[in-house]
């Protein structure tokens, strides 16, 4: 039995050790403050606080990578989530969006939070308190809907 355990355990440990050489690439370029959602749309502090607590870990270049985010295989999942998260929605580069797309992204974010799709189910246990309260989601959605179809400032994104 002991031999069997060693036969299983040793390759696993060796594999885990070897995979640590595979460094994650979170693709987080330096931020430009005037390009962010905050700088462009000036949401109120309650919304900013909620976004920082619930969203920015994956949806901004200010992603806070935890210690296990540098250890394979956790790093693989985190890298996947951060890169995919920024591809869908990146609060750091809001000037990359036209006013039309800005509004679409905000309404999509509203819907994702309202239906509980976001934050991801496996993110929540690791980050207690990250899930936005329904009152916060309502405030965010109301704010997003109140933006005119062309956004708050029509020159944005040009």
């Amino acid at each position: 039995m002991r031999r069997l355990i060693w036969i299983i355990a040793v390759p696993i440990v060796v594999l885990l050790a070897a995979m640590q050489f595979r460094r994650p690439d979170y693709n987080l370029p330096p931020s430009v403050s005037e390009a962010s959602l905050d700088a462009i749309h000036h949401p109120d502090p309650q919304i900013r606080s909620m976004l920082d607590r619930s969203c920015n870990a994956c949806h901004s270049v200010q992603a806070r990578i935890p210690w296990y985010g540098h250890i394979w295989p956790a790093s693989e999942l985190l890298q996947s989530d951060v890169r995919r998260g920024r591809a869908y929605l990146d609060f750091s580069n809001w000037d990359h969006l036209s006013p039309e797309m800005s509004r679409i992204r905000l309404l999509n974010a509203c819907e994702a939070m309202r239906t509980g799709e976001m934050p991801l189910w496996y993110y929540r246990p690791m980050h207690p308190g990250a899930a936005p309260k329904s009152a916060e989601v309502n405030v965010f959605c109301g704010w997003a809907r109140a933006l005119s179809p062309g956004g708050v400032r029509t020159e944005e994104g040009q």
Partner: peptide, 12 residues
């Protein structure tokens, strides 16, 4: 036509 995106956002 209404936003910029990084080509290779998920994988380089």
């Amino acid at each position: 036509g209404n936003s910029y995106a990084q080509l290779g956002a998920y994988r380089d």
